[in-house]
Design a protein around this nucleic acid. Structure first.
Length: 722
DNA sequence: ATAAAGTGACTTTTT
DNA sequence: GTCACTTTAT
């Protein structure tokens, strides 16, 4: 196979490894996707394995699609029939097929993060628990963790009183899901692992079917995923995994990079292959990445190398605050593009938390430069999309209680909390789902439930029940798009959403966009549409076609590469994030996160930190990230020779608009002096401690009674002299 | 039952 | 500073 000529010896060794377990430890940019796809091509093209017997799993749809495209290019027709998908979609398919062995039907719906929290909230309310003491997010996190550890509610370990409460919530949570004929993300893995574990016949069937298993990003697997892989490989041990423990960044989601070590123990005959040659970055970038990651204990050091040469130094820049950081980024990009050396699409800006994106977006908007932001939440999380989804889901599966609760009074149709409560209690007393009672009430006085319910309740519910039963009747004869249009018309959704405001118009635009997405499913089922929408990830929404800079979190950046990378907010508290401070394991993950970010860069890397960082909308003094100290000076270009003034104040960057005539000609006078008392709209009253003019701005230190010392720019803060 | 006004948590990362 | 949820007034 001549493709092998393009591979280095280690890559070739991996691609052509014989049968049995193989562990490929692949550094960043070492061509792991190529190895995976070539391996598939090798198995099918050279070893005569039928595509039907090959299973390849990834974490994102995008990665799966990319691999699929590459395999397609190499094998064409010969590759048809290969199973290639994310863990969740693969499990989803198995669960639908094997629903007979499971406590739900094959037309189950998938509860997304938002639905999961809603269920927990509902349960906490139903159990009369205090949602201040037991925060839905926290309780859900405990449940999710348990599921990832393959623990059902019945087996939830109880050591504290809180555990006891969580267990009760978990039991009822799971009950609600099953009554709704629903599974959550964690369940998809959990039920599949359970199925393979409990039913030897099913296990054997799938293990024989998937004779060759390939896994991408293996370091991100959790216990459930690892277990199900082990079961699938139980008959043949033909499991080929690719991963990098240094790029494990999903610990909070249950991922355990120790699965890489476990693999070696569970499959003692495993061949281990190291890929260390990097084809992406310059040596300076790799050296700084290694300098950062070497700060983590207990790891096997990797020696990443490239044939690309040293390249430019790492650009380190200190700025006054996040706003200046954003302006700096935009300015640099604009200048670089203007100089014709680069294209807008060559740039990526990465940050630790989503909240940091806003200030960047504002800077791009202000400069009139287009950009794209990675994040599905922006679309699928919108109220109007969730509303329509609730209706579609309800039509598909009337048992879905969460969708029922959302749809029943959106738009308002006079069904309030009281009415809903009596519907729920009544349904519960008969062990029916509220949706089914609702459906039946649609027929009016003929309904078997009619006499049992108060007049007010049944007359308000009946019309909605009628609507719902209509949709349920249509659903199999209509395409997802036609059903959506019918629903939108029946509930007069446009009228509800378009209130004349710009926001209303935008919402309706989103609904139209959602329609276009549904139009792709004319030949497919409503179920397929619902499943795909539930399983899209942020990374999947990235469209590579637009030639504009990309903004994303460091998490979303994994697997991507860009000629120029900016990592912003390299401050203590942001990266590493303050929430990780007290947990050594979490701190190691923060470091890996930066490692992932650095290794995305091909040619240029900017590391930015600021003297002040915004937190909850307040600006407060900030320290540079500790990780910056780990990067050797000689790799760094901080705009000065020798790096002496590395963190000096004079390096503060001033955006251009501040140098516009109005600002530069007019000299700011010092208005405030120590001892004066002032009022601030948000922070209350305070006393001036110090005031000085800097870069034609008056910078005032104020001690506020309520929140302590703050540094503000007088012209921006709306101060009043008291 | 609903709209308006007030309160409090929230910001880590997502299939 | 923002969101979602709760209380209050209509």
């Amino acid at each position: 196979m001549d493709v092998l000529r393009d591979l280095n010896p280690q890559q070739q060794q991996a691609v052509m490894a014989g049968t049995g377990p193989v562990l490929v430890l692949a550094g960043p940019g070492s061509g792991k996707t190529r190895v995976l796809t070539q391996r598939i091509a090798y198995l099918i093209g050279q070893m005569g394995v039928r595509p039907y017997h090959v299973l390849a799993v990834t974490f994102t749809n995008k990665a799966a699609r990319e691999m699929g495209d590459r395999v397609d290019r190499m094998l064409g027709e010969r590759g048809r029939g290969l199973t290639l998908g994310t863990f969740h979609s693969t499990c989803g398919r198995i669960l639908r097929r094997e629903a007979d062995h499971l406590p739900f039907d094959s037309n189950y719906v998938i509860f997304d993060a938002d639905d999961q929290i809603r269920v927990v909230k509902q349960v906490i309310k139903d159990l009369n628990l205090d949602d201040k003491r037991y925060r839905p997010h926290g309780v859900h996190a405990s449940i999710s963790r348990a599921k990832n550890e393959l623990l059902f509610a019945e087996d939830f370990p109880v050591q504290t009183y809180r555990d006891e409460v969580v267990k009760r919530v978990y039991l009822r949570y799971q009950h609600t899901l099953l009554a709704s004929n629903a599974v959550d993300f964690d369940d998809m893995l959990l039920w599949t692992a359970f199925l393979l574990e409990e039913s030897p016949a099913v296990r054997e069937r799938y293990s024989r079917r998937y004779e060759h298993i390939l896994v991408d990003e293996f370091q991100d697997t959790n216990m459930a995923q690892y277990t199900l892989l082990k079961h699938l490989a139980s008959f043949h041990q033909n499991i080929f995994v690719v991963g990098d423990p240094d790029q494990s960044i999903y610990r909070w989601r249950g991922a355990d990079f120790r699965n890489v070590l476990r693999f070696d123990e569970d499959f003692p005959s495993a061949q281990i292959i190291l890929l260390e040659q990097n084809y992406r970055s310059t040596q300076n970038i790799l050296d700084s990445a290694m300098a950062v990651i070497d700060g983590n204990p207990h790891r096997t050091k990797k020696q990443l190398f490239t044939e690309r040469g040293e390249g430019q130094k790492i650009m380190l820049q200190e700025l006054y605050d996040d706003r200046e950081m954003a302006s700096f980024v935009v300015e640099r990009i604009a200048r670089s593009v203007a100089s014709q050396r680069t294209q807008p699409g060559d740039f990526a800006v990465m940050y630790r938390t989503n909240a940091q994106s806003r200030i960047l977006e504002e800077a791009f908007l202000a400069a009139n430069l287009p950009y794209k932001l990675v994040g599905a939440q922006r679309f699928y999380g919108r109220r109007e999309i969730k509303d329509i989804m609730a209706y579609l889901r309800l039509a598909h599966n009337p048992k879905d209680e969460i969708s029922m609760l959302r749809a029943i009074n959106t738009p308002r149709r006079g069904i309030g909390t009281k009415t809903i409560a009596s519907l729920r209690t009544y349904a519960q007393s008969l062990d029916l789902s509220p949706g089914n009672v609702l459906l039946d009430l649609g027929v009016g006085a003929e309904s078997e439930h009619w006499e049992s319910l108060p007049n007010r309740v049944r007359t308000t519910l009946s019309p909605f029940g009628k609507l719902l039963s209509n949709w349920c009747n249509f659903r199999d004869d209509l395409s997802p798009l036609e059903l959506m249009d019918q629903i939108i018309k029946d509930i007069a959704y446009r009228n509800y959403i378009e209130d004349g405001s710009d926001e209303g118009a935008e919402r309706w635009e989103n609904v139209m966009e959602f329609r276009r997405l549904a139009a792709d499913y004319n030949e497919k089922s409503l179920m397929a549409f619902l499943e795909d929408v539930a399983l899209v990830s942020d990374q999947d929404t990235l469209d590579a076609s637009a030639n504009v800079p990309t903004l994303m979190t460091l998490h979303a950046a994994k697997g991507l590469e860009f000629p120029v990378v900016f990592i912003v907010g390299l401050n203590e508290g942001t990266l590493p994030h303050i929430r990780s401070f007290d947990d050594p394991e979490a701190m190691q993950e923060e470091r890996r996160l930066l490692y992932v970010g650095i290794t995305r860069a091909e040619d240029s890397l900017y590391l930015l930190h600021s003297l002040n960082r915004y937190n909850f909308g307040y600006s407060e003094p900030a320290e540079p990230s500790r990780y910056l100290d780990d990067i050797p000076m000689l790799l760094i270009d901080d705009g000065y020779t020798g790096g002496q003034k590395r963190r000096s104040r004079s390096s503060i960057f001033r955006p251009e608009k501040w140098e516009s005539p109005e600002y530069t000609e007019q000299v700011v006078e010092q208005e405030y002096s120590p001892g004066m008392r002032v009022g601030h709209p948000a922070w209350g009253e305070g006393m001036i401690l110090n005031s000085k003019i800097e870069d034609n701005e008056e910078i005032v230190d104020i001690f506020f009674e309520d929140i302590g010392l703050k540094k503000v720019v007088a012209s921006l803060a709306k101060l009043t002299v008291l």
